[in-house]
């Protein structure tokens, strides 16, 4: 190869690389980005069944139920306007409690239950998830829908 063409070839390589990376990133982002949803958005049908998403809300008072296997828990997540039943199998994080904030990664099941793969709780008042900031401080769960 002529030395003159070297820069051109390198530049073409770089261009092809960047274009490929761009396509890769765009398709991966379209498939894998999880949307942050609130219970009211789920009630309004903005989330479809099976789509990966992140649910944020408060754990409603007196809603935590433990199944007899000792591992699966059910609770209701609420944002003060709507409620979503959540099921989770595993060890809940340290500060997971009723009437405090939580964020769950998972998917919506056909029956309207949100099945969580992972639950994050807000750590303490200094580490509030920004998405939780918009919710009223002393919200009450609405009547179960």
């Amino acid at each position: 190869m002529k030395a003159k063409h070297q820069r051109l070839v390198l530049a073409l390589f770089a261009l092809a690389g960047v274009a490929g990376a761009g396509v890769l990133a765009a398709s991966a982002l379209r498939d894998e980005a999880a949307y942050f949803r609130t219970p009211v958005e789920i009630r309004d049908g903005k989330a479809s069944v099976g789509e990966p998403m992140r649910l944020g809300g408060m754990v409603a008072a007196n809603s935590i139920r433990r199944q007899s296997d000792g591992l699966t828990i059910n609770f209701v997540a609420t944002d003060g306007k709507a409620s979503v039943p959540v099921e989770f199998k595993g060890i809940v994080p340290d500060l997971f409690a009723e009437e405090s904030g939580m964020v769950a990664d998972g998917r919506l099941r056909g029956d309207g239950t949100f099945v969580a793969d992972r639950i994050l709780a807000k750590h303490d008042e200094r580490y509030m998830p920004p998405q939780m900031g918009e919710m009223p401080k002393n919200m009450k769960a609405p009547a179960t829908t």
Binding site: A28, L29, E32, A34
Partner: peptide
């Protein structure tokens, strides 16, 4: 996600994206 949130959309990008790219 930070840029998307500034435009009103809340998105989180997790391990599947990074593993794939």
């Amino acid at each position: 996600p930070i840029v998307a949130e500034a435009m009103g959309e809340k998105i989180s990008v997790g391990p599947p994206y990074y593993n794939r790219v």
